[in-house]
């Protein structure tokens, strides 16, 4: 297949990152020899990324009550049991309180939060607690990365390795294990030259083994979540969406290659 001519359809797949590995290599080499084509395809990728980033926040908005199917279940009078009312009230309260404090109500609010939405909350909460901890943000520092990776691999039951995010300006400072309702999770913390931190959070997913990259806002802490092959990921911080996005892309690419 490597010798097959490059098609326009393949170039579109390439823009979307949907080519099989061998063809991706072939197309990359083909583009490297053709600067004009490379510029065109690069422009398509920029368009796509800009459009995604521009629209990402909409999907992160809280769902209004009219669009919440869980509330519809409780709409008819006989559904309006005491529990239904409590549920509706706590959801309303969660909307009103919003932001960072909303998540504390999660156990009482009706819609069970699972999948990468749950992961987003855990990741944002872990970031908020540990990234700002001047004394001991991590359990094992980056100097012990081998030990850290081995620990995570054992607890998450699969080989895990801290991705290299230096190309995004982030150095690994270390990591720690996090306890969640869904079992252990790993938290890698990175920092850039200006002192800004980013957290890479990962744990096995029971419900949503695969999920595309999704923008999440948990108060001031924001980031991207995705899931691949039964492992869920979150990249969270307090920086602009596009920087978090490119960092998340970089981490995802390394996990996919591994």
């Amino acid at each position: 297949m490597t010798d097959a001519p490059v098609t326009e359809t393949e170039l579109q797949h390439y823009v979307d990152g949907r080519l099989p590995r061998d063809r991706e290599t072939a197309v990359t080499a083909w583009l490297a020899a053709r600067p004009e084509e490379a510029e065109r395809i690069g422009a398509y990728r920029s368009e796509r990324d800009a459009l995604r980033a521009a629209l990402a926040p909409i999907a992160g908005e809280p769902l209004p009550a009219e669009l919440d199917l869980n509330l519809r279940r409780h709409r008819r009078p006989h559904w309006l049991s005491a529990r239904g009312m409590t549920v509706a009230a706590s959801i309303m309260l969660a909307f009103v309180v919003g932001g960072g404090s909303g998540w504390m109500l999660r156990d009482r609010a009706a819609p069970p939060i699972v999948g990468t939405a749950a992961l987003a909350r855990e990741a944002a909460a872990s970031y908020a607690v540990y990234a700002g901890d001047a004394a001991r943000p991590v359990e094992i520092a980056a100097t012990g990365q081998l030990e850290l990776d081995r620990w995570f691999s054992r607890r998450l039951s699969r080989p895990v390795k801290a991705p290299d995010l230096r190309a995004a300006g982030f150095d690994l400072i270390g990591g720690r294990l996090i306890a969640t309702n869904f079992g252990p999770a790993g938290l890698y913390l990175y920092r850039d030259a200006s002192g800004a931190s980013v957290a890479l959070y990962l744990r096995p997913m029971r419900v949503q083994g695969t999920d595309r990259m999704t923008w999440r806002e948990e108060g001031a802490v924001r980031g991207w979540t995705w899931a691949d092959d039964g492992l869920g990921f979150g990249v969270f911080g307090e920086m602009p969406a596009d920087r978090l996005h490119s960092t998340a892309d970089m981490a995802r690419a390394q996990f996919r290659r591994a």
Binding site: L55, I58, A59, G60, E61, L63, L67, D68, L69, N70, R72, R73, R75, R76, W79, P111, G115, A117, Q208, T214
Partner: peptide, 28 residues
């Protein structure tokens, strides 16, 4: 007509997709 009640299957399958539906609708 009495409003249709969503069942648990429907909620599990559809609710997670609503944010994306909102985004596509708003973009259009």
């Amino acid at each position: 007509i009495a409003p249709v009640q969503p069942n648990a299957d429907l909620i599990a399958a559809v609710q997670p997709l609503i944010p994306a539906l909102r985004r596509y609708a708003r973009a259009l």
